[in-house]
Simulated scan of single mutants.
Amino acid sequence: MKVALGQFAVSKVWQENADICVNLIKRAQEGGADLLVLPEGILARDITDPDIVLKTAQPLDGPFMTQLLAESSKSALTIMMCVHVPTGGQRVFNNLVTIRGGEIISQYLKLHLYDAFAAKESANVQPGSVIPELIEVAGLKLGLMTCYDLRFPELARRHAVDGADVLILPAAWVKGPGKEAHWDVLVTARALENTCYIVAVGECGERNIGASMVVDPLGVAVVRAGEVPALIFAEIEPKRISHARSVLPVLANRRFARPELA
């Protein structure tokens, strides 16, 4: 499976972000990708306005997703990204949406909200309550996670026990002392401890680190972006997964039960 990681700086204006996404979709198609992963919160971002997710949330039949779905209908490329959608109440959902062939094929509402490092995502976002099912792309099974989920090993392990080959993580990882080191350690750990590839795609710009990366099942960083917008590609090799699980059979050797949502 060939994966494309589309890292960019999200603006305040949804139309500008939609145009960037369409461009990334076209370039990923031209690059022969089977999967394109985009960052978290790509509808709009403004570091001066903590309530922007409330003001800019759109339903999945709104103009932002309609534009992306129209572009998606032109190929078999699978595309994943996180957008904020209305709940019908006072908060919004942080929704990891997967589209293919002009249709929405899955949704995952973020379980772990970023109430840490003086931030409080839960002020505006309602958490999900369902572990997402695996998605198949190019013969491989993918488990879905979003940003702060990375700090909780249970979801990644649940996906691995359920049969995931690859973990997908759109993110908007906030800058701060030691935060880029946290990203490196945690992305690598989730891959290595589950003998899965992980595709982690970060938003870049004024607030967030970027640093999108693919780490293989033995903890080797296959490709990595810097702090500026980029489209990078990586090959996901099934033989590498089989090799890792033969020499490091942690999934077979584990003594703990399958993680369940509390």
Results as ranks from 00 to 15, higher is better:
49 D>H: 13
59 P>W: 01
184 D>K: 08
200 A>P: 06
229 P>L: 05
2 K>P: 12
108 Y>W: 07
47 I>Q: 15
174 V>E: 13
224 R>C: 04
98 T>W: 13
230 A>D: 07
14 W>F: 10
240 R>K: 13
206 E>V: 04
32 G>I: 10
208 N>R: 11
111 L>G: 00
205 G>T: 06
235 E>P: 04
244 A>L: 10
113 L>N: 04
207 R>L: 13
127 P>Q: 06
191 A>E: 06
105 I>W: 01
22 V>K: 05
36 L>Y: 03
26 K>W: 14
151 R>V: 15
22 V>H: 09
221 A>C: 15
157 R>E: 12
69 L>C: 02
77 L>K: 00
96 L>E: 02
238 P>H: 01
13 V>W: 11
160 A>P: 05
9 A>D: 07
100 R>Y: 03
103 E>A: 09
192 L>E: 13
61 D>R: 13
104 I>V: 06
218 L>N: 00
176 G>E: 00
132 P>L: 05
158 R>A: 09
118 A>D: 12
85 V>L: 05
27 R>S: 11
98 T>S: 10
196 C>D: 04
48 T>E: 09
23 N>F: 09
45 R>F: 13
190 R>A: 06
84 H>M: 09
108 Y>S: 03
180 E>G: 15
208 N>W: 11
61 D>W: 09
142 L>E: 00
230 A>Q: 11
45 R>L: 11
43 L>V: 13
145 M>R: 05
140 L>T: 04
162 D>C: 11
27 R>E: 08
30 E>G: 07
44 A>T: 03
256 F>L: 15
66 T>Q: 13
136 E>R: 00
65 M>F: 11
94 N>F: 02
206 E>H: 01
150 L>C: 10
226 G>P: 10
256 F>I: 12
155 L>Y: 02
100 R>F: 05
36 L>C: 05
60 L>F: 08
98 T>K: 15
133 E>D: 11
83 V>G: 03
122 S>G: 00
189 A>V: 15
120 K>E: 14
50 P>E: 00
185 V>L: 15
187 V>G: 02
160 A>N: 03
182 H>C: 14
5 L>S: 02
193 E>K: 02
251 L>Y: 06
62 G>P: 05
51 D>G: 13
96 L>K: 13
243 H>E: 13
130 V>C: 11
15 Q>H: 10
162 D>L: 09
215 V>Y: 06
155 L>K: 03
149 D>I: 01
188 T>C: 14
57 A>G: 03
26 K>R: 12
99 I>H: 14
48 T>G: 07
143 G>M: 00
234 A>H: 02
78 T>V: 15
41 G>E: 01
208 N>L: 07
160 A>H: 01
186 L>C: 05
257 A>N: 09
35 L>A: 06
